[in-house]
Design a binder for these strands. Structure first.
Lengths: 192, 192
DNA sequence: AGAGTAACCAAGCAAGCGCTAGTGTAAATG
DNA sequence: CATTTACACTAGCGCTTGCTTGGTTACTCT
């Protein structure tokens, strides 16, 4: 097997695995289902990954890293007004959840399935992403745009955003950006 | 086996099952684990439930019904001001999530594991609970307490509340009621 | 041409899974 | 007293699971 490499084939397989994990959940996804989706036999899977666990870890790492990258890029490119930065973060978050990036969904909803070692190894990524949120929330708090406890606010906002996966219909009338704007408007006293 | 009855023994077993489902997730919880926790052998389980599925259905039914009951009772006993009613709903929701009522957590996080028949049979309970939320949100909107789309607001609020199970520490410094109040304050322009 | 390597397959093992069949037993019921 | 009912047990069946083994193919690089 390839020792923790990042071959293009493995990248592709990780993407397919993410899709299945979102559809069925990690536990219900068998190695045979994964293999079939990838067009290979189940045994061949273990040439690319040593474990089913390692597949999950790969998906989650990709998902979190991607979310982090997109958020950082979006923040770098946007204005400095706290309100705009808040909106930007919310939009970026929903973008990673809905636009063909199942990996972030897996990262959020299947994190508990990681074994302790992998979880410890990946937690710094998640922490970095959360820190980004807290900093944006802090700016909004300092400027008086919103009010409340910094940790509580960021967790409530993230919770509201993450839960959209459960009910949002991409074919509906509302766009992800729309959702993000509505959420930000909801927690801002001045908007309407 | 008992045909869909509600014997006290079955109630007790359902409570224990809920606890395990929260700890391990439905898929990872084996009938042998359930049996051991209940102090019986795995075969004896199927005297009370015809299926592993039926155990899940029983837990979810109990959880949703309980949440509905508690919310209705709380609303009946509280004042008519929209702000107070909102706070009451949020508190009731967190109460069912944290105070030894694992069933509601299972109802929220393992709903997808229900087979279509059971899901259809129980969905009216969930709808009734959601309707309760929408009505309270509507009152708050009509009175100008908050602003936004009724469905979006209720779903954002529920999302924020449900996600608390992922990070809330019951042994921490904040009480569930505390959380509820902070969330309501966050979405209200006038509060501080 | 020969060596090395990445990707795959066929076959199957050991363990664990949900669930069943048949039996025992003590308490409730006629 | 005879019968039913509720609850538990033992034993194991049939199947699926994650994963291994040993070997084959196709491609690249010297």
């Amino acid at each position: 097997m390839n020792v923790m490499n990042a071959s293009p084939r493995r990248k592709e397989l990780t993407r397919l695995a993410a899709q299945l994990f979102v559809q069925e959940g990690f536990d219900r996804t068998t190695v045979r289902m994964l293999a079939q989706e990838m067009g290979i036999k189940s045994g061949s899977l273990f040439h690319h990954f040593k474990d089913k666990q390692e597949i999950l870890a790969a998906v989650i790492e990709e998902g979190t890293q991607n979310a982090l990258l997109i958020a950082r890029k979006a923040l770098n490119e946007c204005a400095t007004e706290p309100e705009i930065r808040l909106r930007t973060m919310a939009r970026a978050h929903l973008e990673t959840l809905f636009t063909d990036r199942n990996a972030h969904v897996v990262a959020l909803f299947e994190w508990r399935r990681l074994d302790p070692v992998a979880s410890a190894h990946l937690s710094h990524l998640r922490d970095a992403y959360e820190a980004l949120w807290v900093s944006v929330i802090d700016e909004a708090l300092d400027s008086g745009l919103i009010h409340g406890d910094r940790f509580l606010v960021s967790r409530f906002v993230l919770g509201a955003l993450n839960w959209t996966v459960r009910w949002y219909d991409p074919n509906g009338s509302r766009s992800p950006d729309d959702l993000a704007d509505e959420l930000v408007a909801m927690i801002m006293p001045t908007a309407d």
